[in-house]
Simulated assay, not measured.
Amino acid sequence: MDTTQTMNRDETQDMISSEKVDGTAVYGRDGERIGSVHHLMIGKRDGKVRHAIVSYGGFLGLGEDYFPLPWNELTYDEGRGGYVVNRDAEHLRGGPRYQRDQEPTWDRSYDDRITGYYGTR
Score class of each variant (00 low, 15 high):
Asp2Pro: 07
Asp2Glu: 10
Thr3Tyr: 04
Gln5Trp: 06
Gln5Tyr: 11
Met7Lys: 14
Asp10Thr: 08
Asp10Glu: 09
Gln13Ala: 15
Met15Asn: 12
Met15Ile: 13
Ser17Val: 06
Ser17Asp: 13
Ser18Met: 14
Glu19Phe: 02
Glu19Pro: 00
Lys20Tyr: 08
Asp22Ala: 07
Gly23Phe: 03
Gly23Val: 01
Thr24Ser: 08
Ala25Gly: 01
Gly28Tyr: 07
Gly28Phe: 06
Asp30His: 03
Gly31Leu: 09
Glu32Lys: 14
Arg33His: 01
Ile34Thr: 04
Gly35Glu: 06
Ser36His: 11
Val37Arg: 09
His38Glu: 11
Leu40Arg: 04
Met41Arg: 10
Ile42Cys: 02
Lys44Phe: 07
Lys44Arg: 12
Gly47Ser: 01
Gly47Asn: 06
Gly47Val: 00
Lys48Ala: 02
Arg50Leu: 13
Arg50Met: 13
His51Ile: 06
Val54Tyr: 02
Tyr56Ile: 03
Tyr56Cys: 05
Gly57Gln: 03
Phe59Ala: 11
Gly61Tyr: 04
Gly61Ser: 07
Gly63Ser: 13
Asp65Asn: 12
Asp65Tyr: 14
Leu69Ser: 03
Trp71Tyr: 13
Asn72Ile: 05
Asn72Tyr: 01
Glu73Asp: 05
Glu73Arg: 04
Thr75Met: 10
Thr75Ser: 13
Asp77Ala: 10
Asp77Phe: 08
Asp77Leu: 03
Glu78Lys: 09
Gly82His: 00
Gly82Glu: 00
Tyr83Asn: 10
Val84Thr: 06
Val85Trp: 02
Asp88Ser: 12
Gly94Lys: 11
Gly95Pro: 02
Gly95Asp: 04
Pro96Leu: 11
Tyr98Met: 09
Tyr98Gln: 09
Gln102Glu: 12
Gln102Trp: 02
Glu103Gly: 08
Thr105Ile: 12
Arg108Tyr: 04
Tyr110Asp: 07
Asp112Asn: 15
Arg113Glu: 14
Arg113Cys: 03
Thr115Cys: 12
Thr115Ser: 14
Thr115Ile: 14
Gly116Asp: 15
Gly119Asn: 07
Thr120Gly: 05
Thr120Cys: 10
Thr120Ile: 02
Arg121Ser: 11
